[in-house]
Amino acid sequence: MRPTRTALLSRIAAGVLGSYAAASLGAAALAFALPLPGRDAVTLAQMTGFLIFTAAIIWAFSAQSAARAWAGIGIPVIVSAALLAILLALRS
């Protein structure tokens, strides 16, 4: 399979923007959901967030196709966003 220029750009978008979205939302959901006292949930979520970003960007560039790259990042993004929305709704 030969990636086209568009496919490469798409991967870069997935790798940079998608990975950031996954990290940011994933970490936020974790900070919310982790059953830890006070500041700890935030700290642990932030640590995990940076690992999520790194793992996601590696996935974006190693997946077989740009479509798979997007799927692998899009699903966690949607799941974390949904989780966050539910947690926010439960709190209010």
Binding site: A23, S24, L25, A27, A28, L30, A31, F32, A41, V42, T43, A45, Q46, M47, G49, F50, L84, L87, L88
Partner: peptide, 16 residues
């Protein structure tokens, strides 16, 4: 981690 509150602001915004 020293930049965490800047780079991942949502964590603090929503954290409980």
């Amino acid at each position: 981690l020293l930049f965490a509150s800047t780079l991942l602001p949502l964590t603090e915004r929503f954290a409980g």
